[in-house]
C-alpha cells in the first residue's frame, strides 16, 4: 500500500497528467460546459419538461428534415466512395511520383477553407456562372437552375468530404501485400473474381472507416447545405440554426441538437462494436 502511494506521487506518474491539464481545461470550458448547457436548455426552455422532444418526434417537418439529413448523408457517402475508391486505387498503383502529385492535389483542396470552396461552387454553378453558360452554349435553352438544389449541395459536400474517404481507403490499399495478389493469381483468380474475393474484402476496413467519417461529418454539416442547398430540403444543422437565429427557440433547437448528437453516437457505437473506434484515424 505504501509503495502504491509513493508511486502515485512519483513525478513520473503525475507529469503526463499535468501535460493533459491545459487540454482538459479547454475541453471542459469550451465543450463540456456548453454541451451540458444545451442539454439543460432542451428540457428547460421555454418551460421545464420534455415538450421540446415531443415536438421533435411528432412534428412532421422535423421528422422529414431528419430523414432528409440521413438521405443526404447516405448519398454523399456513396458518391464519395464512387469517386474516392478508383482514385485511391490509382494512387496506390501508380509511380510514387504520380501518387505524390494526386495526393498534393487532394490535400491542396483539403487545406482550402470549405467556406471558400462553398462560395467557389456558388460562382461556378450560379445562373451567370460558367457551367450554365456552357450548357447554353451547347444549345440547351433555358437550362434548369443548378444552384440551391439538392444537386449543388451534394456536389459540394462530396467535394469537401471525399478526401476523408480517399485517405482512409488509400492508407489501407497501400498496406496490402502485393504477394497476396500474386498468390491469388497463381490460384487462378483474375479480373472481377480477384477484385470481389480478394481485393475488395482486403480494402473493406478502409471503406468502413471512410464511410463512417464522411457520414458522421455530413450529418452535422451546416454551412454548405445552408448556402448551396434547396431551402425545401433542409438538413438538421440548418434547421437548428434557424430555430435559434430566427425564432430564438433555444429549447427546441437544443433538443434537435441532442437528438442529432445521440444519432451520431449510435452510428459511431455501431462502428466501434464492429471495428473499434481507435482504428478510425488509421
Amino acid at each position: 500500500m505504501m509503495r502504491r502511494m509513493t508511486r502515485l506521487v512519483d513525478h513520473q506518474t503525475i507529469w503526463p497528467w499535468l501535460l493533459l491539464l491545459p487540454l482538459a481545461v479547454y475541453l471542459l470550458v469550451f465543450f463540456a460546459v456548453p454541451l451540458i448547457e444545451v442539454l439543460k436548455m432542451s428540457v428547460t426552455e421555454p418551460k421545464p419538461g420534455l415538450g421540446n422532444y415531443q415536438k421533435v418526434f411528432t412534428g412532421a417537418l422535423y421528422g422529414k428534415v431528419f430523414l432528409n439529413t440521413f438521405g443526404t448523408a447516405t448519398l454523399v457517402t456513396v458518391c464519395c466512395l464512387i469517386v474516392g475508391y478508383p482514385l485511391a486505387y490509382l494512387m496506390s498503383n501508380t509511380t510514387p511520383r504520380r501518387a505524390m502529385m494526386i495526393l498534393l492535389l487532394i490535400t491542396m483542396s483539403f487545406w482550402t477553407s470549405f467556406l471558400v470552396r462553398t462560395y467557389a461552387w456558388m460562382v461556378l454553378l450560379g445562373n451567370n456562372g460558367p457551367i450554365i453558360w456552357l450548357i447554353e452554349m451547347i444549345g440547351i435553352a433555358d437550362p434548369p437552375g443548378l444552384l440551391f438544389t439538392r444537386f449543388s449541395s451534394t456536389l459540394a459536400m462530396v467535394h469537401i468530404l471525399a478526401p476523408y474517404m480517399i485517405m482512409n481507403i488509400y492508407s489501407v490499399m497501400k498496406k496490402i501485400d502485393p504477394v497476396l495478389i500474386r498468390s491469388a493469381e497463381s490460384m487462378g483468380a483474375r479480373g472481377g473474381s480477384l477484385f470481389r474475393h480478394i481485393y475488395l474484402p482486403l480494402t473493406a476496413p478502409g471503406i468502413a472507416n471512410g464511410a463512417v467519417l464522411v457520414f458522421v461529418i455530413c450529418l452535422g454539416f451546416y454551412v454548405t447545405p445552408v448556402l448551396l442547398g434547396s431551402p425545401r430540403e433542409q438538413m438538421v444543422a440548418g434547421l437548428i440554426g434557424n430555430q435559434i437565429e430566427q425564432f430564438l427557440a433555444f429549447g427546441l433547437g437544443s433538443a434537435m441538437a441532442v437528438v442529432l448528437l445521440v444519432i451520431t453516437l449510435i452510428v459511431l457505437g455501431i462502428y466501434h462494436s464492429r471495428f473499434g473506434l481507435d482504428k478510425l484515424w488509421g
Binding site: D177, V179, L180, R182, S183, S186, G188, A189, L202
Partner: peptide
C-alpha cells in the same frame, strides 16, 4: 500465371 496450374507457397505464406 492463372492458367499454368502451378501451386505456389510463398515465403510469408500469403494467406488471405
Amino acid at each position: 500465371p492463372q492458367d499454368r496450374n502451378i501451386g505456389i507457397v510463398f515465403q510469408n505464406y500469403a494467406l488471405f
